[in-house]
Write a protein that binds this DNA or RNA. Structure first.
Length: 619
RNA sequence: GCCGGCGUAGCUCAGGGGUAGAGCAGCUGAUUCGUAAUCAGCAGGUCGUUGGUUCAAUUCCUACCGCCGGCUCCA
């Protein structure tokens, strides 16, 4: 056996010196790890994702040591590296606050400066358990009890010993730059029945420049925040007196919605969907029959009318089922695709509400596809193609996830298996990568989720395709087979954008508020240099409007620079500038949002250009 | 729902046990001006809501409402 570092330095002394860890058979290990001298070893060098993970995880240990020194009696839980940094969870007599962070950072800087080695030792489980029990580290004891191996590894730097799988940096001095970012409450093991711990988030890099760039990125993301842009661009608002999680759409935002919804209606009709609609409240008995009353009641609003209890719909499926049931269906009629832009209400927990992306009333671009079992795969693939077409048009990257049967569910094992297999086959045929979330499906069936990223890197679910063999059963849906027998159709629930509200939130951040011409609520603003151009401006304005272009005019007695600034701040794609020259030649001068000016042209030519760019995906 | 932070004018924010201030926006007037802010004047607030402590609360405390960062959950 030999140390990984020694083997590395035989191969390439220079690289070995820079290495922060080693990779043996695809597994990242400590440089000090004892390995078989015959096995191929690669250095893990700064600049790679693996190195960053090791660095950040090690920084979490350093933070834990600092916190232990500063706050005697604190208990440590877990401290992993995460996508953009790390965190560590603590239990203390009080929660940590942002004011605690500078002192912790200072102590961490001392530990880093001391360049303490991270030492690993393997120990019997029982000995480690006793050690942590004596320290009162109840969380570590619980972790040890859950480990299968008889041996556990402990890491020590300075006076801090932590139960940890590793690997770590060779020493604390390798941490080039770090910053503690925020504090938050987090349940032990994510379980709300277990103690609330105090979590500290931070990030770390190998050098200061990278840290600075990352912090700048966070600043940039804040500027794109749809909640801020939504107010500045006068798209929507929220009101304490109206209720949390309820969106109020202002003219510009409502217009944006209209454009997206019109786009959706056209795209659905193109693909053989029928538009349908149902009421906002349905009698409670319907929800009992569907299973929502048993499984989804805590998220529903109820109201009482004339002694009857009604549930405000949290989903649109029930009316669609009644449409299906309204007459006898033949196998020849299937698939039937019912589409509705349905407003649903869900009572989400107060703490999860978030701008447009998490609200209590939202509009789903919802459809229910009723088909024969032999059509399921084709239908799923058709929906996935629909998703791809739409996401490409908006320029979104997305990830796919398959969610399987949860503990609390209805339906037979066989149905679940069949549905899960169909989704899996569609995923495989798509050729895209996907993750599997065991037990994360809906109570009535498995599903494929499509997730988009917002400006801050948070992922939001948009499209989802869910198999459901339970509702057709509960509502006794049938079709007549070629043999004349009654058969059960399969139902797919699916959304493409998910919620129009959420999608708009993500869209605002994606475009940083500068919508392409086809989505811009105000496509053109006509600006006058002096009032001598007013008459021509009104004429141009009317011509553009008549051509179907969303144009406004700014004839105020302001300097041109001020008018341009305001149009620019509202991110209007085209400004039409009219002064004495344009009045005389009966032309217009267009200025783009980028600052570029087009040569003077005829109004008709300009209108044709904007109209062409008003096609979805064109501008 | 839970933990922590926050709530002062339309917006961004200052202030602080003796009942409030700035910039921008708004209004009025002057200015007629060519590519990101013309100048001047005026007006604007039950200091989130509700109890309590106090001679006195916007300021301190309680509860509620809402927002922000997370946990958890989901479109």
């Amino acid at each position: 056996m030999a140390q990984a570092a020694e083997i590395l330095s035989q191969d390439d002394a220079k690289a070995a010196k820079r290495a922060v860890a080693a990779k043996v058979g695809g597994k990242v290990v400590d440089l000090s790890a004892e390995i078989d001298p015959q096995s191929p070893v690669e250095p893990v060098l700064p600049g790679t994702p693996e190195a960053l993970d090791v660095l950040r995880h090690s920084t979490a240990h350093i933070m834990a040591e600092a916190v232990r020194e500063l706050f005697p009696g604190v208990k440590v839980a877990i401290g992993p590296a995460i996508e953009n940094g790390f965190y560590y969870d603590f239990a203390y007599e009080r929660a940590f606050t942002p004011e605690d962070l500078p002192a912790i950072e200072e102590k961490m800087a001392q530990i880093i400066k001391a360049n303490l080695p991270f030492a690993c030792r393997r120990q019997k489980k029982s000995a480690a358990r006793q050690y942590f029990a004596e320290q009162g580290e109840v969380f570590k004891v619980e972790l040890i009890d859950d480990l299968a191996d008889d041996q556990v590894s402990l890491y020590q730097q300075g006076g801090f010993v932590d139960l940890c799988r590793g690997p770590h940096l060779p020493s604390t001095g390798k941490v080039g730059a770090f910053k503690l970012l925020s504090v938050a409450g987090a349940y032990w093991r994510g379980d709300e029945k277990r103690p609330m711990l105090s979590r500290i988030y931070g990030t770390a890099f190998f050098d200061k420049k990278e840290l600075k760039r990352h912090l700048q990125l966070l600043e940039e993301a804040k500027k794109r925040d749809h909640r801020k842009l939504g107010r500045e661009l006068e798209l929507f608002s929220f009101h304490e007196e109206l209720g949390a999680g309820m969106v109020v759409w202002h003219p510009r935002g409502a217009l944006l919605r209209y454009l997206i919804e019109e786009f959706e209606r056209r795209e659905h009709l193109k693909r053989g969907y029928h538009m349908v609609g149902g009421p906002q409240i349905l009698r409670r008995e319907m929800w009992e029959r569907s299973g929502h009353f048993d499984h989804y009641r805590e998220n529903m609003y109820f109201t009482e009318v004339d002694g009857n209890s009604y549930g405000i719909k949290p989903m649109n499926c029930l009316a669609h089922m009644l449409i299906y049931k309204s007459k006898v269906r033949s196998y020849r009629d299937l698939p039937l695709r019912y589409f509705e832009l349905g407003l649903v209400h869900r009572h989400e927990k107060s703490g999860v509400l978030h701008g447009l992306t998490r609200v209590r009333a939202f509009t789903q671009d919802d459809a229910h596809i009723l088909c024969r079992p032999d059509q399921v795969l084709d239908e799923i693939e058709g929906v996935m193609q629909f998703v791809t077409d739409v996401m490409d048009l908006f320029g979104f990257d997305y990830s796919l996830e398959l969610s399987t049967r949860p503990e609390k569910s209805i339906g037979s094992d066989q149905d679940w298996e069949r549905a899960t297999d169909a989704l899996l086959a569609a995923l495989k045929n798509s050729g895209r990568e996907y993750d599997i979330n065991e037990g994360d499906g809906a109570f009535y069936g498995p599903k494929i989720d499509v997730k988009l990223k917002d400006a801050l890197g948070r992922q939001w679910q948009c499209a989802t395709i869910q198999c459901d063999f339970t509702l057709p059963d509960r509502f006794d849906l049938n079709y007549i087979s070629p043999e004349g027998s009654q058969e059960r159709p399969v139902m797919l629930h699916r959304v493409i954008l998910g919620s129009v509200e959420r999608f708009i939130g993500v869209l605002i951040e994606h475009y940083a508020g500068a919508f392409p011409v086809w989505l811009a609520p105000e496509q053109v603003r006509v600006l006058t240099v002096t009032e001598r151009a007013d008459e021509w401006a009104q004429e141009v304005h009317a011509l553009l409007r008549a051509a179907g272009i969303r144009a406004d005019a700014d004839l105020r007695n302001e300097k041109l620079g001020a008018k341009i600034r305001e149009a620019q701040l509202m991110k209007v794609p085209y400004m039409v500038i009219l002064g004495d020259k344009e009045v005389e030649d009966r032309l217009i001068t267009a200025r783009l949002r980028s600052g570029e000016n087009l040569d003077p042209m005829k109004v008709e030519d300009f209108a044709a250009r904007v109209a062409a760019e008003s096609q979805p995906g064109r501008g």
